[in-house]
Computed example of a mutant assay.
Amino acid sequence: MNIFALNIALAVAWAALTGNFTLGGLAVGFVLGSGALYLAKPLFPGCDLYFLRGWRWVKLCVLFLYELVVSSIAVVWDVITPSTKARPGVIAMPLDVEDEMAILLVTNLISLTPGTLSLDVTDDRKTLFIHAMFADDPDAIRAQLKGGMERWVKEAME
């Protein structure tokens, strides 16, 4: 049986038992169902992969929020100070992810981060062009994005 579907069923059952069919009630049921499934891992063969994938998605969200805050502070600081440190430029970044959904997620996360914008992906889906607000060192930006967002997405999509 699909572990995710079982977790959803446990969340709905929890909401039915408590009479709280709201998003919050379903979320509490989902978390409690996850805990119950975690305790019952030996009974379900594919359960380890389910929890590993869930952990990777949580990690991706938390690390993206951290990057969002840090880059927002950098952009705001550059805007409010009299001297500008922005040296915009376009950077070509080779892509390791191959799946269309993974490429879409990487490009959207980069575009959502202040100071960077995904411009285009080549037809062969091997290179992503990025506009960066602080492009003094393109190699450092490439390394940061590849070691950060792209690697996190690749781990979450496995």
Score class of each variant (00 low, 15 high):
105 L>M: 13
33 G>M: 00
151 R>V: 01
15 A>I: 01
149 M>F: 06
83 S>P: 11
86 A>I: 08
107 T>Y: 09
15 A>Y: 03
118 S>A: 08
15 A>N: 00
130 I>K: 01
122 T>S: 15
137 D>F: 13
120 D>I: 01
131 H>C: 01
113 T>C: 05
150 E>M: 03
65 L>V: 08
21 F>N: 01
100 E>I: 12
134 F>D: 00
133 M>A: 01
4 F>P: 02
92 A>T: 14
142 R>P: 07
52 L>K: 12
115 G>L: 00
145 L>I: 02
90 V>M: 04
120 D>W: 04
37 L>Y: 13
133 M>E: 00
95 L>V: 03
156 A>M: 14
79 V>N: 00
133 M>V: 04
6 L>A: 04
78 D>N: 13
64 F>L: 15
101 M>L: 09
113 T>A: 03
129 F>W: 06
122 T>V: 12
66 Y>N: 12
45 P>M: 05
124 D>Q: 10
107 T>D: 02
80 I>D: 04
21 F>H: 00
67 E>A: 06
77 W>E: 10
65 L>Y: 07
41 K>F: 15
63 L>G: 05
67 E>S: 11
76 V>D: 05
75 V>I: 06
57 W>T: 03
105 L>Q: 04
25 G>K: 02
137 D>H: 11
34 S>K: 05
116 T>D: 01
90 V>Y: 01
140 A>Q: 05
125 R>A: 12
142 R>D: 06
128 L>T: 02
34 S>A: 05
153 V>Y: 07
129 F>L: 07
53 R>K: 08
96 D>M: 15
11 A>C: 04
133 M>P: 04
108 N>G: 10
144 Q>G: 11
94 P>H: 07
41 K>G: 04
23 L>D: 00
147 G>Q: 11
68 L>M: 15
53 R>P: 01
81 T>R: 13
89 G>C: 13
157 M>H: 12
141 I>D: 07
115 G>T: 02
50 Y>S: 12
80 I>P: 11
33 G>C: 02
78 D>A: 04
74 A>I: 03
131 H>A: 05
